[in-house]
């Protein structure tokens, strides 16, 4: 009984961790290059979920099989979210690249507020039921601890991480991203098109955020315009926890945060579920501001 409870918490923690990881990647990559907390990142995740819901409803009229609907809707949502990510960078951040960081940060908060209310006004402020379209995984039928959707979330996240790691390590664009993250000036001098690289970073971050948004919505079964904000902040906490700028760090931090929340809610109190993330954040920033995997950076003087 107790062990079953533990396993349940473990899997729910891993599921949360997976979603945080998908979101945290966007934060960590953007921060790596532009040194900016993209507060609107969570809204891209929310828009991904909304677009999926809308597309599923539209496609249902065509009487396609559920899996086809799910795949098409998800693809459309991912592409559109990437479009939002790209556009918000061009509007709210690009003009501020040389401005004080405080300006860009305030602009980011403005963008987040704007996108939330854009969806609230264009759609609704109520919770909407989200189709649970994730397919059932047969071999899990006899096992209660892990649900199909949890399994799918976990696997998808792993696959995305592997693809992303390969992309960043071995492709030309990936190398440009790493170069720009190390030293933007130097990267420009060696022929890296930094502006394009930043755009690509926003695109990739938005894609993974949208995937996260779709998966978690299908798992939870409902969405509203506000789901992105808290998830976004927590994913940022995860990125800081792992060491901001570091991709493996973001993944590790996400799982640590997901598990902490899950076990904290299970064994301590679910009332304070959200507080755990913030307390972890405060503690990590006091005792190890560079995060678990980050390198301590001396400030240049």
């Amino acid at each position: 009984m107790d062990f079953e409870f533990f396993v349940n918490l473990l899997f729910s923690g891993l599921t949360r961790g997976s979603i945080y990881a998908l979101l945290a990647l966007g934060y960590t990559m953007v921060y790596g290059i532009v040194k900016l907390i993209n507060f609107a990142h969570g809204e891209v995740y929310m828009i991904g979920a909304f677009t999926t819901l809308i597309m599923v409803s539209v496609l249902t009229i065509l009487n396609l099989p559920i899996l086809a609907i799910a795949v098409i809707a998800a693809l459309v949502a991912i592409v559109w979210s990437a479009g939002y990510g790209y556009t918000l960078d061009k509007i709210a951040y690009k003009p501020l690249r040389e401005a004080p960081r405080l300006s860009a940060l305030i602009s980011a908060i403005g963008m987040s507020l704007f996108l939330q209310n854009y969806v609230r006004l264009a759609q609704t402020s109520d919770f909407l039921p989200f189709p649970r379209f994730l397919p059932t995984v047969r071999f899990l039928d006899n096992y209660d601890g892990l649900s199909s959707s949890q399994f799918i979330i976990f696997t998808t996240t792993t696959v995305v991480m592997v693809i992303l790691t390969i992309f960043i390590k071995f492709t030309r664009v990936g190398k440009s991203m790493r170069a720009a993250a190390q030293d933007r000036m130097m990267a420009t001098l060696t022929g890296v098109n930094v502006n394009k690289t930043i755009s690509v970073t926003f695109l990739i971050g938005s894609v993974t955020a949208a995937i996260g948004g779709i998966l978690i919505s299908a798992h939870v079964g409902q969405i509203n315009f506000y789901i992105g904000f808290l998830a976004g902040i927590k994913a940022f906490v995860a990125a800081v926890l792992g060491g901001i700028g570091s991709i493996p760090g973001a993944v590790l931090g996400s799982f640590v945060l997901g598990l902490t929340e899950s076990f904290g809610a299970g064994y301590i109190s679910s009332d304070y579920e959200d507080v755990f993330a913030f307390i972890i954040l405060v503690l990590i920033l006091i005792f190890r501001p560079s995060g678990i995997l980050g390198k301590p950076a001396a400030q240049k003087v």
Partner: peptide, 15 residues
Amino acid sequence: YRLLIFGAVLVIMMV
């Protein structure tokens, strides 16, 4: 449209 406008105001002012 209050909050929508506030969001836009923050971005536009900063830019």
